[in-house]
Design a protein around this nucleic acid. Structure first.
Length: 490
RNA sequence: GGUCCUGUGGCCGAGUGGUUAGGCAGCGGUCUGCAAAACCGUCUACAGCGGUUCGAAUCCGCUCGGGACCUCCA
């Protein structure tokens, strides 16, 4: 079960067995955020998807170096007439240093990733800190004759490259189609061909973020940073490169082209792409203006949200879909996820209270359940399938808890291990209940329920119900079971 | 227009050429002083039309619908 992991590789459009280049080491590079705005639900998807990958690979025993960049330079505003850098544009408006904007939104991003229980990457390089590496790489591409200088900018010669390589291996694009379909835009005349992309861009006079280079004061092209930084930290050839499907073309396609020319070979073994989260069937994205911020989800402060949704609800919601499928947002779906998560978490508590019996009941096969869980993960990180299996764990826990079935000590230990491993370590879910005062609340609740027990022994149900109702107002729910009362907190 | 993806029951979402995904919601039970929870049972499916096949929701073709990308947007 250990090394049967299969991953869907965008390059081959097939699931392939995952064999690291240099086991037990694994290198992963994932395109991180551009820090010019608050993180929204769209950011949570790649964050959680590749967190799952990171966690599972580590669980399998691999020594993973996970690199996720922060883009803090070089991306031009879509609709900007001036060609201003997004970050520079924001800085101008707020009259603060560009790096102040970068710092602020980087911190915000980290804050929300932490709340979603997304592990920190091994290395989080910033594009602005790797200008030298990018310039060096551009020089190599120029030396190979695959780029040209025009008006102080450097462009990658896609047409020439395509004579000897396939510009389209990843995306399936055909160069001729690209050329005939490219719109005429300002600045295009600098290029030999509209399909060419910038490696280095000369800064206009009003552009604040700029660095010196052999060609001009300017900034690197938007595909350069990922190529330069992935090579720097993972080598010229590494195992997995991830990112959203929206980055597939031209970003990743161009990364491949740049790296091939600079290093002489393919940079990445396996390309992984997570799909989008949609809102009313449409991609949720900053540029479309339909993104709901993670802040809004956590607070419930948004016209489209019926209530607040906790970080773990968001995490569970995302994990309930396979990463390559689109995931449609709705209050109904989120609330279903919330309830399902609660059920899963409650079972975890029940599990810790179970005691072993001499034998395990007929029809309960914990080992099978364990292998089913691994099988699900090994099949391209099929988290929905894993979760379905974990609900079978929940069912068994509840049945045993109700004394309708038994588990022997070995099976109980294994069931506990499965639960902890998959729910906490691999899916990265947390029990959000209680907070920092857990011990005190536990103590108080124990006391209250003891007193209520006495009241109930006297059949004073009015008092008993009053205690229960008042606690419910505090979001604490009392449940009277066969073995006495228990409680949960929302 | 080009490249690619996609269309599953009230909602969200897996999956396989012939056997129950799972969660949420609904319905009927059990349990309970009541309630909640839990357990048991149960109803709504595979966009449409053809084809391949002993058999397809699962493979192929067409039609219709949805989406992503095709821009120095990420």
């Amino acid at each position: 079960m250990e090394n049967q992991l299969h991953i869907y590789n965008t390059l081959s459009r097939k699931k392939e067995q995952f064999i690291p280049l240099d086991p037990p080491h694994v290198g992963i590079y994932v395109c991180g955020p551009t820090v010019y705005g608050d993180p929204h639900l769209g950011h949570a998807r790649p964050g959680i998807t590749f967190d799952l990958v990171f966690r599972y690979l580590r669980h399998l025993g691999f020594k993973v170096r996970y690199v996720r960049n922060i883009t803090d330079v070089g991306h031009l505003e879509n609709d900007a007439d001036e060609g201003d850098d997004k970050i520079a544009k924001r800085a101008r408006a707020e009259e603060i240093e560009p790096m102040e904007v970068v710092q602020y939104y980087s911190d915000r991003y980290h804050e929300f990733m932490d709340r979603l229980n997304i592990l920190k990457p091994s290395i989080e390089p910033r594009a602005s800190g790797h200008i030298i590496e990018q310039i060096e790489m551009i020089k190599k591409i120029l030396d190979q004759g695959m780029a040209y200088i025009s008006e102080g900018s450097v462009y990658f010669d896609v047409v020439k490259y395509n004579d000897t390589h396939n510009y389209g291996v990843l995306s399936g694009r055909i160069l001729e189609d690209l050329i005939s379909n490219t719109r005429e835009l300002d600045g295009q005349q600098e290029k030999h061909n509209p399909a060419d992309f910038a490696l280095w861009k000369k800064a206009s006079p009003e552009h604040i973020m700029r660095w010196p280079s052999p060609w001009s004061d300017g900034f690197p092209g938007w595909h350069m940073e990922c190529s330069a930084m992935s090579i720097k930290y993972l080598g010229e050839n590494f195992d997995i490169h991830g990112g959203g499907m929206d980055l597939l073309f031209p970003h990743h396609e161009s990364e491949i082209a740049q790296s091939r020319v600079a290093t002489g070979h393919d940079p990445v073994r396996c390309w992984m792409h997570n799909n989008m989260i949609t809102l009313n069937g449409q991609k949720m994205g900053k540029s479309l203006g339909n993104a709901i911020g993670l802040e809004q989800f956590f607070s419930g402060d948004h016209p489209l949200l019926e209530k607040a949704y906790s970080p773990m609800t968001i995490r569970f919601f995302i994990l309930q879909a396979q990463y390559r499928g689109t995931l449609d947002f709705s209050n109904e779906a989120l609330q279903a996820a919330e309830k399902g998560l609660k059920r899963l978490m409650e079972a975890g508590k029940q599990l810790s209270r179970l005691s072993a019996s001499p034998t395990t009941s007929e029809g309960i096969d914990i080992k099978k359940l364990q292998s089913d869980c691994f099988e699900a993960m090994n099949d391209d990180f099929n988290s929905p399938m894993l979760i379905a299996n974990l609900f079978e764990v929940v069912r068994i826990v509840n049945v045993v808890s109700d004394a309708n079935a038994q588990l022997n000590a070995e099976d109980l230990a294994l069931l506990t291990e499965i639960y902890k491993t998959f729910v906490f370590d691999i899916l990265g879910l947390m029990d959000e209940i209680g907070g920092s005062n857990t011990e005190m609340i536990d103590g108080l609740m124990h006391l209250i329920l003891e007193l209520r027990k006495q009241v109930r022994a006297n059949k004073d149900y009015a008092s008993s119900d009053k205690i229960r109702d008042e606690l419910l107002k505090l979001k604490i729910q009392v449940k009277d079971g066969k073995e006495g009362a228990s409680w949960t907190m929302d």
